[in-house]
Design a protein around this nucleic acid. Structure first.
Lengths: 234, 234
DNA sequence: CGACATTAAATTGTTGACACTTTACACTCG
DNA sequence: CGAGTGTAAAGTGTCAACAATTTAATGTCG
């Protein structure tokens, strides 16, 4: 075997393990809602479900704790983490800073192909927004943000951003946008794309930061009105 | 027991556990250099050292992996994570974004007491810098940055920032500043403090972001000259 | 002498059993 | 009845033994 000919890493050496597998599976159970937020996880039951012993399950849960998806209370058990609105607000702030930084980086290194891709996503979102088709808009919106972060070319940034977005999925109720907020949000996307296309790093940062902050305010407004409705119901 | 009289949480219910304890201990072993970077961790040996079985040790190591302090290679073992210069550069970028955001937040909500504290730290750093006393400068410098992040009032931000700083300690060789870079760096601190004191959020962000970015460049310059020296030695 | 196959040792992976803690339930007493 | 107590069940915490894999060492052949 010639050592220098293969640019590929020799990481075919079993890149996965049982705890890692369980971690991914439990994670998707949480994010898909198959495990209810705030609820308790029964180690025995979970281990039985997967046909393994509790050891690997416990290891997987330790990882998920560090990722902020579950909480471990000693001698009490593992609980699916539930976020209150204050934590969500904090996360949105950090997300704004990270997303702004991503756009700034991308603006200073982007090529025509990336801009074209962004414009395509933007056009598709515009269509979906005009049709008030949230189900079509949502994945495009996600792809738009993720593309910017990914193409920024900073792996640490990507990991941090995605980890935060993952945690934010623990907060249900905020995922919906009503009617014209879709169009409002997408106008902000347009400004971001233009800043990146102009290679204006400062503007890319600012428009992107503001976009997430406005998203936070939209969520907050919705959350307040939801809380009011809850109050009246009680 | 009256329920509302005690503002204290009843979280005295054993807030720690053996794996958490081990996690903290192993972490400090890594950061103190008692476990050498890049080296392999022997589970049996480590468990024997603490007088416990391998189970809790493995759980602790899973947490440390998610925190980015160790790497787990299935069937191969656990290795203390070693950072290459490219990863360090990426981390500095994210750190710049987070620290900039912290300063921005603090500028928009700070009070006189906080500014006074910052000025005190600044004065002490100025003294240490003029005396070229790195050992005195370093903890002050750390406290300065951490104080800004802490007082920004965003717990998620604080956790993310500290996690990143912790990981950066895995990169040895960069911790030293020579002669006049101390004074250069501290002049940047002064600009940050002034921006915060003026409650100028935009300026606080920019000066703080730039400060970390310049720190990155200073590190990079040092790293390049070190690599050159290494080359000559070979 | 070096490359390769074979075997032994060391180390990780997983399990089931047991100890300890918490929780739920029934019981007693005021 | 209701508060408090005691007991049983359920669940988490820890361990030591066994299985599987990797690594090191040994021996063999070209």
């Amino acid at each position: 075997m010639s050592p220098s000919s293969a640019a590929h890493d020799v990481s075919f050496l079993r890149l996965t393990s049982l705890p890692m597998l369980l971690e991914r599976e439990i994670e998707s159970m949480i994010l898909d809602g198959r495990l209810s937020i705030g609820g308790r996880i029964n180690e025995n039951q979970l281990a039985a479900t997967f046909g393994v012993s509790r050891g690997p399950v416990r290891e997987a849960l330790r990882s998920l704790e560090a990722l902020g998806l579950v909480e471990l209370l000693p001698n009490r058990g593992v609980f699916i983490r539930s976020l209150d609105i204050a934590q969500v607000v904090e996360m949105y702030g950090v997300r704004a800073a990270l997303f702004g930084y991503a756009a700034q980086l991308l603006a200073s290194r982007t090529d025509a192909g990336e801009v074209a891709r962004l414009r395509t996503l933007l056009d598709e979102m515009t269509e979906a927004a005009q049709a008030h088709d949230f189900d079509r808009y949502y994945p495009l919106n996600f792809a738009f943000h993720d593309f910017i972060v990914e193409q920024a070319g900073n792996g640490v940034l990507t990991a941090q951003y995605r980890g935060l977005v993952k945690q934010l999925r623990l907060y249900r109720a905020g995922n919906l946008m009503t009617g014209n907020t879709l169009e409002l949000s997408n106008e902000e996307h347009a400004r971001i794309v233009e800043a990146i296309a102009r290679r204006d790093a400062a503007s890319a940062y600012q428009t992107s930061f503001d976009h997430v902050e406005r998203g936070k305010e939209r969520l907050l407004a919705r959350s307040v009105s939801l809380a009011r409705a809850e109050e009246r119901r009680a």
